[in-house]
Amino acid sequence: MADIKVRKFVTVVEEILHEGGPPAAVPPRRAVVAAVIENPFAGRYVDDIMGLMDDLKPLGIEMATRLVKALGGDAGVVEGYGKGAIVGEAGELEHGALWHNPGGYAMRELLGGAKAIVPSAKKVGGLGAKIDIPITHINASYVRSHFDAIEIGIGDAPRRDEMVLILAMTTGARVHARVGGLKKEDIKAGDGLR
């Protein structure tokens, strides 16, 4: 991580045993990792920001690795993913967009070439701002049981000149998924959609 200054990592793992219905045989788990980094472009307009995208690649790999570890160390259990960014108020939304490439590709690589686009959300926010990270199936975006979202926020971040970069992975469907649609068993096209 050549020029990336990480102030803090936060890792959250949620294990869902039930939501009022029958307890899950294997409780689905959802994990999020967030890194609070300094925003080198805060406070001024910088036209060429592309260099940071490459600089963020090692951080993407590090965070994806932390997520798999938080889920027990086997990338094979991961079925859903998502990503996001909260940019501190002295930055702009476009700075958060730099995370699409390094965050997304790090997870797809670690998960053995996952095919679906990684859904994402981004916003500008202050300390304690929360963001809902959208989640879809790693190989087929239309798998309805895996549409989900995870809320994350950090009490003391982002400061004005910081960004919170976020990756998320899940091990299964919503705990009582029952609204039909494409099932994961029926994924076939290999186009990342169905």
Binding site: V6, K8, T11, V12, V13, E14, E15, L17, H18, E19
Partner: peptide, 17 residues
């Protein structure tokens, strides 16, 4: 008692002030 979910949070501070 019936547990609905368990959440674990790990916070690691690398830089302060």
């Amino acid at each position: 008692v019936r547990i609905r979910k368990i959440v674990t949070i790990l916070e690691e501070t690398l830089i302060e002030e």
